[in-house]
Simulated scan of single mutants.
Amino acid sequence: MAAQDTAEQLLHLKLAFLAGEPPASVLSLARKAGEGSITPHVQHFLLENCTSTNVEGRQNCTYTTTILKRIIAEIELSSGIVIDELYEEFAQRMLSKAKDPLLNKADYIYKEISFLPSSDDNTSPGLVSMVARLSCSSNMLEGDTGCSLWPSSLFLSEFILSYPKIFSKKCCLELGSGVGLVGICLNHIAASKVILTDGDSSTLTNMKENMELNNLCVGGEHPKLLDECTNKVECKYLSWEEVSESDLGGCQPDIVLGADIIYDPICVPHLVRVLSTMLRRDGYQGKTNGTSSDEFVTEGPIAYIAIVVRNVDTFNCFGKAAADAKLSVVNITSNAAPANFLPYMLSYDRSSVQLLRITSSS
């Protein structure tokens, strides 16, 4: 393997660890970096660049211990050489867990999502375009879905970074913002205004903390405090069921975004009402989204929704409700496929995500 390829594989291994990828994915990348086995060189790299630095002290102890345990078990099973430092690191972490039981029970895990330059960019390997630092729930199957990181959010973020001209200098509002990854990307490409919303108070609290982790000024209740900030994001509570027409009409975003927000048939009518109100063309004062030769051009506000269709009936329910509300829903996944900025995230199935463009005819 060429030195450049080896460096790239090791970078992917490090970024996968920092992103909290599943242990199986991290082990797969470790094997690839060692050309089929987890060599002493790869082990030293893990210790020096992942576990020892410990992500500025934020990385979840249980996650790191699990990775070390799996690596040691695989090397021993293949009769390979486990370096002494790896055994020592694992032993120290097991001892720490025994002394402090709370380390075994972490509801949140810190992740660093690093976006690499696309293969089309003429940049040196090893560079990272952007890093988003996120506190995410480790219990997505126990109801804490709003603080989890979903494929649709990753896809929508890649879409924003692939087509920055669509969002640059536009007022962008996201529905169901969750951990806030999309908002961080919108700020990165210089959207004129970024408004993140969610209807769950605990999710909103975590989202605000994530904005601060990324050195962004957070506003919402006191928007005047944001006037002097260049990196600013507004985080607002927005319940689709309870928000009034007048409050929605006062937002007037150029672009509405959402990731995995079509999931519950009970919420569909409320979501369609919100979209219909925000996408109305009457009284719209914003700019067009692109140039006259741009396939994304529109004379009014537009929405981009990324979804994984987990229930066909729910998706069809949304389609019918949108049509009744005179909303045009077009699947643009094949025509607007984003660049792959996350090649190291083996657990991220980009092919499962669809991208919808929604506009209003009223």
Rank of each mutant, 00 (worst) to 15 (best):
L204E: 12
T203W: 01
L29C: 04
R280I: 05
F155D: 00
V268N: 00
G199C: 08
P265S: 14
K326G: 06
A7G: 13
A16D: 07
E228I: 15
M345F: 09
R31G: 04
S119G: 12
M94A: 06
G146K: 04
P223Y: 03
F318Y: 12
E242A: 02
G176W: 12
I38W: 03
N187C: 12
I38Q: 01
W150L: 00
M211W: 01
S352L: 04
I302C: 13
I302W: 07
I75E: 14
L18R: 02
C185G: 10
M211P: 00
R281I: 14
A191V: 09
A336M: 09
A191P: 01
F341Q: 15
L27Q: 03
V233E: 01
I305T: 08
V218E: 00
G143C: 09
L11V: 05
D294R: 08
L204P: 03
T314K: 10
T203Q: 02
Q92K: 12
I83F: 05
H270P: 02
K326F: 09
I67M: 06
K32G: 02
G143Y: 03
M207F: 04
I71A: 04
C61P: 12
P343I: 05
S118C: 01
R133I: 04
S157I: 09
K170C: 08
L11D: 02
A132M: 04
L279R: 01
C61G: 03
K69C: 07
V82E: 06
T205V: 13
L173F: 14
L186H: 13
M345N: 07
E245S: 06
H44Q: 09
F45I: 06
Q285D: 05
S239R: 09
Y87I: 12
K105T: 09
T333M: 08
I189Y: 05
A30M: 15
L127E: 11
A336K: 14
Q4Y: 06
L11Q: 11
F318H: 05
H188T: 15
L10M: 12
L161S: 03
I358A: 01
D247A: 15
L46R: 13
Y284K: 03
D107F: 02
S246N: 11
E35I: 10
E21Y: 11
D349T: 10
Y263D: 00
P151R: 03
V256H: 13
D349G: 01
L186S: 01
K320W: 10
T123H: 09
N231G: 08
V55K: 07
N340T: 13
L127F: 07
S157D: 10
L95T: 04
S28F: 02
K287C: 08
E299D: 02
E76G: 04
R350Q: 14
D324R: 08
A2F: 09
K193M: 09
A259N: 11
G258R: 03
D84G: 01
E242C: 11
T333C: 03
C172W: 03
T39V: 10
F167Q: 05
D84F: 11
Y348H: 02
D264K: 15
L77Q: 06
D198P: 00
D294T: 15
T205R: 09
S114M: 05
S293A: 12
